[in-house]
Protein backbone atom coordinates (compact mmCIF):
# COMPACT_ATOMS: atom_id res chain seq x y z
CA UNK A 1 0.00 0.00 0.00
CA UNK A 2 2.89 2.35 0.78
CA UNK A 3 4.17 1.82 -2.77
CA UNK A 4 0.74 2.58 -4.22
CA UNK A 5 0.31 5.77 -2.17
CA UNK A 6 3.82 7.04 -2.95
CA UNK A 7 3.21 6.50 -6.68
CA UNK A 8 -0.03 8.46 -6.35
CA UNK A 9 1.83 11.25 -4.51
CA UNK A 10 4.39 11.44 -7.35
CA UNK A 11 1.51 11.72 -9.84
CA UNK A 12 -0.18 14.35 -7.68
CA UNK A 13 2.96 16.52 -7.59
CA UNK A 14 3.42 16.00 -11.31
CA UNK A 15 -0.10 17.20 -12.02
CA UNK A 16 0.43 20.16 -9.71
CA UNK A 17 3.60 21.45 -11.42
CA UNK A 18 2.39 20.77 -14.97
CA UNK A 19 -1.33 21.58 -14.97
CA UNK A 20 -2.40 24.99 -13.63
CA UNK A 21 -5.83 24.83 -11.87
CA UNK A 22 -8.75 25.89 -14.04
CA UNK A 23 -9.91 28.67 -11.68
CA UNK A 24 -6.45 30.28 -11.79
CA UNK A 25 -6.17 29.99 -15.56
CA UNK A 26 -9.64 31.50 -16.03
CA UNK A 27 -8.74 34.41 -13.74
CA UNK A 28 -5.57 35.02 -15.79
CA UNK A 29 -7.64 34.95 -19.00
CA UNK A 30 -10.12 37.48 -17.60
CA UNK A 31 -7.20 39.71 -16.59
CA UNK A 32 -5.61 39.40 -20.04
CA UNK A 33 -8.82 40.50 -21.75
CA UNK A 34 -8.97 43.69 -19.67
CA UNK A 35 -5.36 44.71 -20.20
CA UNK A 36 -3.40 46.41 -22.91
CA UNK A 37 0.26 47.13 -23.59
CA UNK A 38 2.98 45.52 -21.46
CA UNK A 39 0.52 43.84 -19.08
CA UNK A 40 -1.34 42.16 -21.93
CA UNK A 41 1.94 40.96 -23.45
CA UNK A 42 2.94 39.42 -20.10
CA UNK A 43 -0.42 37.73 -19.50
CA UNK A 44 -0.48 36.33 -23.03
CA UNK A 45 3.01 34.91 -22.50
CA UNK A 46 1.91 33.36 -19.19
CA UNK A 47 -1.18 31.76 -20.77
CA UNK A 48 0.83 30.45 -23.73
CA UNK A 49 3.39 29.02 -21.31
CA UNK A 50 0.61 27.31 -19.32
CA UNK A 51 -0.67 25.71 -22.51
CA UNK A 52 2.78 24.61 -23.69
CA UNK A 53 3.53 23.06 -20.28
CA UNK A 54 0.34 21.00 -20.52
CA UNK A 55 1.04 19.93 -24.12
CA UNK A 56 4.67 19.02 -23.51
CA UNK A 57 4.01 17.63 -20.01
CA UNK A 58 6.75 19.85 -18.59
CA UNK A 59 6.72 21.88 -15.36
CA UNK A 60 5.23 25.32 -16.08
CA UNK A 61 8.07 27.01 -14.14
CA UNK A 62 11.68 25.92 -13.60
CA UNK A 63 11.16 26.59 -9.88
CA UNK A 64 9.06 23.58 -8.97
CA UNK A 65 8.88 24.85 -5.42
CA UNK A 66 9.15 23.53 -1.89
CA UNK A 67 7.01 20.39 -1.67
CA UNK A 68 4.25 21.28 0.79
CA UNK A 69 1.27 19.10 1.64
CA UNK A 70 -2.02 19.59 3.44
CA UNK A 71 -3.45 16.35 4.79
CA UNK A 72 -6.98 15.96 6.12
CA UNK A 73 -6.86 12.53 7.71
CA UNK A 74 -9.91 10.72 9.05
CA UNK A 75 -9.29 9.30 12.53
CA UNK A 76 -10.43 5.88 11.27
CA UNK A 77 -8.35 6.00 8.06
CA UNK A 78 -6.50 2.65 8.10
CA UNK A 79 -3.17 3.79 6.56
CA UNK A 80 -2.27 6.63 8.91
CA UNK A 81 0.91 4.88 10.07
CA UNK A 82 2.46 4.72 6.59
CA UNK A 83 1.24 8.04 5.21
CA UNK A 84 4.22 10.21 6.10
CA UNK A 85 6.77 7.77 4.69
CA UNK A 86 4.68 7.37 1.53
CA UNK A 87 4.59 11.15 0.99
CA UNK A 88 8.37 11.49 1.41
CA UNK A 89 8.97 8.58 -0.98
CA UNK A 90 6.47 10.09 -3.44
CA UNK A 91 8.44 13.35 -3.47
CA UNK A 92 11.65 11.44 -4.26
CA UNK A 93 9.92 9.61 -7.11
CA UNK A 94 8.45 12.83 -8.52
CA UNK A 95 11.84 14.56 -8.40
CA UNK A 96 13.44 11.99 -10.72
CA UNK A 97 10.39 11.11 -12.84
CA UNK A 98 9.02 14.52 -13.83
CA UNK A 99 11.79 15.88 -13.20
CA UNK A 100 11.52 18.51 -10.46
CA UNK A 101 14.32 20.94 -9.64
CA UNK A 102 15.99 19.83 -6.39
CA UNK A 103 15.06 22.60 -3.96
CA UNK A 104 16.03 21.31 -0.51
CA UNK A 105 19.25 22.84 0.82
CA UNK A 106 20.88 22.18 4.22
CA UNK A 107 20.83 25.52 6.07
CA UNK A 108 24.23 24.93 7.69
CA UNK A 109 26.32 23.37 4.93
CA UNK A 110 24.47 24.80 1.90
CA UNK A 111 24.39 21.31 0.41
CA UNK A 112 21.44 20.44 -1.82
CA UNK A 113 19.99 17.02 -0.89
CA UNK A 114 19.25 16.46 -4.57
CA UNK A 115 15.86 14.78 -4.10
CA UNK A 116 13.68 17.50 -2.54
CA UNK A 117 13.67 15.82 0.86
CA UNK A 118 15.44 16.78 4.07
CA UNK A 119 14.79 17.93 7.60
CA UNK A 120 11.03 18.74 7.81
CA UNK A 121 10.87 18.68 3.99
CA UNK A 122 8.47 17.78 2.42
CA UNK A 123 6.45 19.75 4.96
CA UNK A 124 3.15 18.17 5.92
CA UNK A 125 0.31 20.11 7.56
CA UNK A 126 -1.80 17.59 9.43
CA UNK A 127 -5.47 18.01 10.25
CA UNK A 128 -7.41 15.24 11.98
CA UNK A 129 -11.06 14.94 10.99
CA UNK A 130 -13.86 12.44 11.53
CA UNK A 131 -14.27 9.51 9.16
CA UNK A 132 -12.20 6.84 7.42
CA UNK A 133 -10.97 8.74 4.35
CA UNK A 134 -8.01 10.96 3.67
CA UNK A 135 -7.62 14.03 1.45
CA UNK A 136 -4.12 15.12 0.42
CA UNK A 137 -3.40 18.43 -1.28
CA UNK A 138 -0.01 19.21 -2.83
CA UNK A 139 1.03 22.87 -2.94
CA UNK A 140 4.50 23.20 -4.45
CA UNK A 141 5.42 26.79 -3.70
CA UNK A 142 8.08 28.81 -5.53
CA UNK A 143 10.90 30.72 -3.84
CA UNK A 144 10.42 34.08 -5.56
CA UNK A 145 6.96 34.56 -4.14
CA UNK A 146 7.86 33.00 -0.79
CA UNK A 147 10.60 35.64 -0.41
CA UNK A 148 7.85 38.28 -0.50
CA UNK A 149 5.91 36.67 2.36
CA UNK A 150 6.10 38.49 5.67
CA UNK A 151 4.82 38.86 9.21
CA UNK A 152 4.28 42.00 11.22
CA UNK A 153 3.21 42.31 14.86
CA UNK A 154 1.05 45.42 14.65
CA UNK A 155 -0.06 47.51 17.60
CA UNK A 156 -3.70 46.58 18.30
CA UNK A 157 -4.48 50.32 18.36
CA UNK A 158 -4.09 50.63 14.60
CA UNK A 159 -7.15 48.41 14.20
CA UNK A 160 -8.41 46.70 11.05
CA UNK A 161 -7.68 49.87 9.02
CA UNK A 162 -4.03 49.50 10.00
CA UNK A 163 -4.09 45.89 8.84
CA UNK A 164 -5.45 46.87 5.43
CA UNK A 165 -2.89 49.66 5.05
CA UNK A 166 -0.05 47.29 5.86
CA UNK A 167 -1.21 44.68 3.31
CA UNK A 168 -1.57 47.22 0.47
CA UNK A 169 1.76 48.93 1.20
CA UNK A 170 3.55 45.59 1.40
CA UNK A 171 2.22 44.46 -1.97
CA UNK A 172 3.36 47.75 -3.54
CA UNK A 173 6.91 47.26 -2.22
CA UNK A 174 6.88 43.62 -3.39
CA UNK A 175 6.06 45.02 -6.85
CA UNK A 176 7.19 42.70 -9.67
CA UNK A 177 9.30 40.40 -7.47
CA UNK A 178 6.71 37.71 -6.60
CA UNK A 179 5.72 37.31 -10.31
CA UNK A 180 2.30 39.01 -10.30
CA UNK A 181 -0.59 38.65 -10.82
CA UNK A 182 -0.33 36.93 -7.45
CA UNK A 183 -2.78 35.39 -5.01
CA UNK A 184 -2.44 36.80 -1.51
CA UNK A 185 -3.20 34.93 1.70
CA UNK A 186 -3.60 37.05 4.83
CA UNK A 187 -3.66 35.61 8.35
CA UNK A 188 -4.82 37.94 11.12
CA UNK A 189 -4.70 37.22 14.85
CA UNK A 190 -3.63 34.19 16.87
CA UNK A 191 0.11 34.44 17.51
CA UNK A 192 2.93 34.90 15.01
CA UNK A 193 2.98 31.22 14.03
CA UNK A 194 -0.81 30.90 13.84
CA UNK A 195 -1.14 33.98 11.60
CA UNK A 196 1.43 32.62 9.14
CA UNK A 197 -0.15 29.16 9.07
CA UNK A 198 -3.53 30.73 8.36
CA UNK A 199 -2.12 32.99 5.64
CA UNK A 200 -0.61 30.09 3.76
CA UNK A 201 -3.63 27.85 4.24
CA UNK A 202 -5.84 30.61 2.81
CA UNK A 203 -4.02 30.10 -0.51
CA UNK A 204 -5.75 26.72 -0.86
CA UNK A 205 -9.03 28.48 -1.58
CA UNK A 206 -10.12 28.82 -5.19
CA UNK A 207 -9.98 32.20 -6.93
CA UNK A 208 -13.23 34.01 -6.18
CA UNK A 209 -14.09 31.83 -3.18
CA UNK A 210 -15.02 34.21 -0.35
CA UNK A 211 -14.76 33.73 3.40
CA UNK A 212 -17.99 32.52 5.02
CA UNK A 213 -18.03 35.52 7.36
CA UNK A 214 -19.62 38.42 5.53
CA UNK A 215 -17.41 41.12 7.05
CA UNK A 216 -14.22 39.21 6.20
CA UNK A 217 -15.56 38.53 2.68
CA UNK A 218 -16.10 42.26 2.22
CA UNK A 219 -12.61 42.99 3.45
CA UNK A 220 -11.22 40.52 0.89
CA UNK A 221 -13.06 42.36 -1.90
CA UNK A 222 -11.89 45.72 -0.58
CA UNK A 223 -8.22 44.67 -0.44
CA UNK A 224 -8.44 43.07 -3.89
CA UNK A 225 -9.69 46.35 -5.35
CA UNK A 226 -7.23 48.45 -3.36
CA UNK A 227 -4.12 46.48 -4.38
CA UNK A 228 -5.22 46.40 -8.01
CA UNK A 229 -5.82 50.16 -7.98
CA UNK A 230 -2.11 50.74 -7.28
CA UNK A 231 -1.34 49.74 -10.89
CA UNK A 232 1.71 47.52 -10.23
CA UNK A 233 0.32 45.07 -12.79
CA UNK A 234 1.57 41.81 -14.28
CA UNK A 235 5.31 41.39 -13.59
CA UNK A 236 5.40 44.92 -12.12
CA UNK A 237 5.23 46.51 -15.57
CA UNK A 238 2.04 48.46 -14.84
CA UNK A 239 -1.55 47.34 -15.31
CA UNK A 240 -4.94 46.68 -13.78
CA UNK A 241 -4.31 43.23 -12.32
CA UNK A 242 -1.66 42.96 -9.60
CA UNK A 243 -3.51 40.28 -7.62
CA UNK A 244 -6.01 37.65 -8.76
CA UNK A 245 -7.53 37.38 -5.31
CA UNK A 246 -7.04 38.05 -1.60
CA UNK A 247 -8.01 35.35 0.92
CA UNK A 248 -8.18 36.17 4.61
CA UNK A 249 -8.30 33.82 7.59
CA UNK A 250 -8.57 34.99 11.18
CA UNK A 251 -8.00 33.70 14.71
CA UNK A 252 -8.80 35.36 18.03
CA UNK A 253 -5.81 37.39 19.16
CA UNK A 254 -4.09 38.17 22.47
CA UNK A 255 -5.27 41.56 23.82
CA UNK A 256 -1.73 42.95 23.43
CA UNK A 257 -1.06 41.60 19.92
CA UNK A 258 -2.28 42.07 16.39
CA UNK A 259 -0.24 39.69 14.23
CA UNK A 260 -0.69 40.01 10.46
CA UNK A 261 0.93 37.48 8.14
CA UNK A 262 1.04 37.75 4.36
CA UNK A 263 1.70 34.69 2.20
CA UNK A 264 2.23 35.56 -1.45
CA UNK A 265 1.66 33.04 -4.22
CA UNK A 266 2.96 33.70 -7.76
CA UNK A 267 0.73 33.48 -10.86
CA UNK A 268 1.64 29.78 -10.93
CA UNK A 269 -0.78 29.10 -8.08
CA UNK A 270 -0.19 25.36 -8.11
CA UNK A 271 -2.37 22.99 -6.06
CA UNK A 272 -3.87 19.55 -6.69
CA UNK A 273 -5.75 17.16 -4.42
CA UNK A 274 -6.44 13.45 -4.15
CA UNK A 275 -8.56 11.26 -1.93
CA UNK A 276 -7.85 7.82 -0.49
CA UNK A 277 -10.69 5.73 0.99
CA UNK A 278 -10.53 2.95 3.58
CA UNK A 279 -10.15 0.28 0.86
CA UNK A 280 -7.10 2.09 -0.47
CA UNK A 281 -8.86 3.34 -3.59
CA UNK A 282 -7.34 6.62 -4.82
CA UNK A 283 -8.81 9.28 -7.04
CA UNK A 284 -8.15 12.88 -8.05
CA UNK A 285 -10.37 15.63 -6.71
CA UNK A 286 -9.68 19.05 -8.17
Amino acid sequence: MKEKISDAIADLLGRAVIDLPEDVENALKRAMEQEEGAAKTQLMAILKNVELARQQKKPMCQDTGTPTFYVKAGIDFPYLDILEEAIVEGVRKATSRIPLRPNAVDVLTGKNSGDNTGRFIPYINWEMVEGDECIITAMPKGGGSENMSTLRMLKPGVGIEGVKKFVVEWMVEAAGNPCPPTTVGVGIGGGADIAMKLAKKALLRKIGERHENEIIAEMEEELLKAINSTGIGAMGLGGKTTVLDVHIEVAHRHPASLPVAIAVQCWANRRKSMKIDKEGKIWNID
Partner: peptide, 30 residues
Amino acid sequence: GPLTVTIDSHGRNLTEEVKEEARKVAERIF
Protein backbone atom coordinates in the same frame (compact mmCIF):
# COMPACT_ATOMS: atom_id res chain seq x y z
CA GLY B 1 10.66 36.89 -26.27
CA PRO B 2 8.46 38.74 -25.68
CA LEU B 3 10.99 40.92 -23.86
CA THR B 4 9.54 44.13 -22.47
CA VAL B 5 12.08 46.93 -22.32
CA THR B 6 11.88 48.42 -18.82
CA ILE B 7 15.17 50.40 -18.89
CA ASP B 8 16.11 52.18 -22.11
CA SER B 9 19.29 54.05 -23.06
CA HIS B 10 17.63 57.44 -22.45
CA GLY B 11 17.29 57.19 -18.68
CA ARG B 12 13.77 55.78 -18.32
CA ASN B 13 13.09 53.00 -15.84
CA LEU B 14 9.56 51.65 -16.25
CA THR B 15 9.31 49.40 -13.16
CA GLU B 16 10.59 52.23 -10.92
CA GLU B 17 8.05 54.63 -12.43
CA VAL B 18 5.23 52.11 -11.85
CA LYS B 19 6.32 51.60 -8.23
CA GLU B 20 6.60 55.33 -7.56
CA GLU B 21 3.07 55.87 -8.86
CA ALA B 22 1.75 52.87 -6.88
CA ARG B 23 3.20 54.30 -3.64
CA LYS B 24 1.27 57.52 -4.18
CA VAL B 25 -1.97 55.62 -4.79
CA ALA B 26 -1.42 53.41 -1.71
CA GLU B 27 -0.88 56.47 0.48
CA ARG B 28 -4.24 57.88 -0.53
CA ILE B 29 -6.24 54.66 0.01
CA PHE B 30 -6.25 54.06 3.79
